[in-house]
């Protein structure tokens, strides 16, 4: 979800995030009991066709299936061993269809739209005194600081290598955790300096 969004103006980009998420949910539910290979294949072709607006980049997107290829091969083999190859193929098509469709949603939905779409689900938190925008902020912070922590780890690893000659070590976990805690202090301060996590519109004392 971090780097996958591709700016564009296709019909999928214009489609509201909530609708896309609901469509994904509905298709997931519909596809699971389906065993008819023809219908499954039509579904797969339909989803693949939705990649058309990306032109050549679509094939780059299909490569995203690579990391799960091993798992798919294992599942296919498992079904051939215990059942029939048609069952195996059905499972394969089902998973590929859903992964491609989910990827399509991340490709065409901005992160903040996605967060806004799921925010209503957090509304019950209000009963416990937690503003519903809090989880959205948390998601944004995670996405923001994963690359930051990765580059800090990179820096620690370099510094470790420069004096030990070895590349990676479990010893880096402790300093990385300490740095993460130090950063969290800084970020909390920065958030407070701009009005805190509840915003300035409903001004409440921060301390």
């Amino acid at each position: 979800m971090i780097a996958t969004y591709i700016p564009g103006a296709s019909w999928l980009h214009r489609c509201p995030a909530g609708l896309k998420l609901i469509a994904l949910l509905v298709v997931s539910i519909v596809v699971f009991p389906l065993t008819n290979l023809w219908m499954l294949t039509i579904g797969l072709i339909g989803v693949a066709a939705c990649y058309a607006p990306f032109g050549r980049d679509a094939f780059v997107q299909f490569k995203r299936l690579k990391p799960i290829a091993l798992m798919l091969a294992f599942l296919f083999g498992f079904h051939i061993y215990l059942g029939t190859w048609t069952e195996g193929l059905a499972v394969l098509i089902r998973i590929v269809t859903l992964v491609l469709m989910a990827n399509l949603v991340s490709l065409t939905t901005r992160l903040d739209d996605m967060i806004a779409a799921v925010e209503p689900l957090f509304r019950p938190l209000k009963l416990f005194g937690v503003p519903p925008q809090r989880p959205a902020l948390a998601i944004a912070l995670v996405l923001r600081f994963v690359p930051v922590l990765m580059s800090i780890h990179e820096g620690l690893a370099e510094s470790y290598q420069a004096r030990s000659g070895r590349r990676r070590s479990w010893r880096l976990i402790a300093p990385l955790a300490l740095q993460a805690l130090a950063i969290s202090d800084h970020v909390a301060e920065s958030l407070a300096a701009r009005g805190g996590s509840s915003g300035l519109a409903d001004t409440r004392m921060r301390r």
Binding site: I2, L111, L137, A140, L141, L143, R144, V148, I183, H186, V187, E189, S190, L191, A193, R194
Partner: peptide
């Protein structure tokens, strides 16, 4: 703040 990586909150 001194370090932009400590200030920017959003991705």
């Amino acid at each position: 703040f001194q370090n932009p990586d400590h200030q920017a909150i959003f991705p």
